[in-house]
């Protein structure tokens, strides 16, 4: 008979060995090469190079600005859509269709989805045709190679995460609180503001931070929709590994992105957990 002590060790041996060999060790290799020279001596040079170069601050600023605006627009679009699905739609079959429509883009490659926007946002694309058709502009507007183009593509890719996070939070709210508030004579707007919103805030905030982290580390969408005009942080990493071949410097950039992402996800996890405990 296998004891309760050895059983987990036996069951976890293969998965943990695999994760150690192909996940932890590669990450450690990156971390080590970010603080060493070719000869193996310790150095902080790669990080000071990131910190002292104005260009990196510009790229970081662009990356964060795009991620921030993306997150804000995702919330503005995702919240009403989640509300609509959970609170307004009464016909189950239609809700099911909507959920499928929200999930299908999630399971389509970033490249395919960004390609769709390349077609739509081109000079003679449907978006420009539409804008000119309703008289908003008389010349085709330039979207590809601009931040607006990247924003449209990133919001498109990340909105489903907000809908699912907020939708889940809304669906699990006990309607009793809202009914109690209404019974006490509080109007619907105030009930929403003081009862419903605080109850789904943890879900919404952790969804927002998730979107922000994914937007900061996005590569494919900005690469395709920037048309080489705008550089974001993940492109710097890719350049170092694919064309410059400076693995030490690339490693320092990778560690920077990784730490930023993990901090954000950690915060999101905390907020999500405290929300679950409060509910």
């Amino acid at each position: 008979m296998i004891s309760a002590r050895t059983a987990p060790a036996l069951l976890l041996f293969a998965p943990l060995a695999f994760f150690a060999a192909f996940f932890l060790v590669p990450m450690a290799v990156v971390a080590i090469s970010s603080i060493t020279t070719d000869g193996g001596a310790l150095t902080a040079l790669h990080y000071t190079r990131i910190l002292l170069d104005q260009y990196h601050w510009d790229v970081l600023w662009v990356t964060f600005r795009i991620a921030l605006v993306t997150t804000a627009i995702c919330m503005l679009i995702g919240f009403p859509l989640a509300w609509y699905l959970v609170r307004i739609v009464r016909w189950r079959a239609w809700r099911r269709v909507c959920v499928i429509l929200i999930i299908v883009p999630l399971f389509t490659s970033n490249i395919v989805r960004s390609f769709g926007w390349m077609v739509l946002l081109g000079r003679t694309g449907l978006v420009n045709q539409g804008l000119m058709g309703i008289g908003l502009t008389d010349r085709p507007m330039r979207f590809l190679g601009t931040e607006t183009g990247i924003l449209i593509g990133l919001v498109y890719i990340l909105v489903p995460f907000v809908v699912l996070a907020v939708g889940n939070a809304l669906a699990t709210i006990d309607r009793g609180y809202e009914d109690a508030s209404a019974d006490l004579g509080v109007g619907p707007a105030r009930t929403f503001w003081f009862v419903t919103l605080p109850l789904c805030l943890p879900g919404a905030v952790s969804g927002a931070i998730m979107v922000f982290a994914l937007a900061v580390s996005a590569y494919v969408t900005p690469a395709l929709l920037s048309g080489g005009q705008i550089t974001v942080f993940s492109m710097l990493i890719f350049q170092q590994y694919s064309s410059v071949f400076d693995f030490h410097y690339g490693a320092a950039l990778s560690v920077t992105l990784l730490v930023l992402t993990l901090v954000l996800v950690g915060i999101a996890g905390r907020i999500g957990e405290s929300g679950r405990r409060a509910a």
């Binding site: 580390s217 990493i237 690339g250 490693a251 992105l257 990784l258 992402t261 996800v265």
Partner: peptide, 9 residues
């Protein structure tokens, strides 16, 4: 939650 670019590199 890992940036795939980092794992790929």
């Amino acid at each position: 939650v890992l940036p795939y670019v980092v794992l790929g590199a």
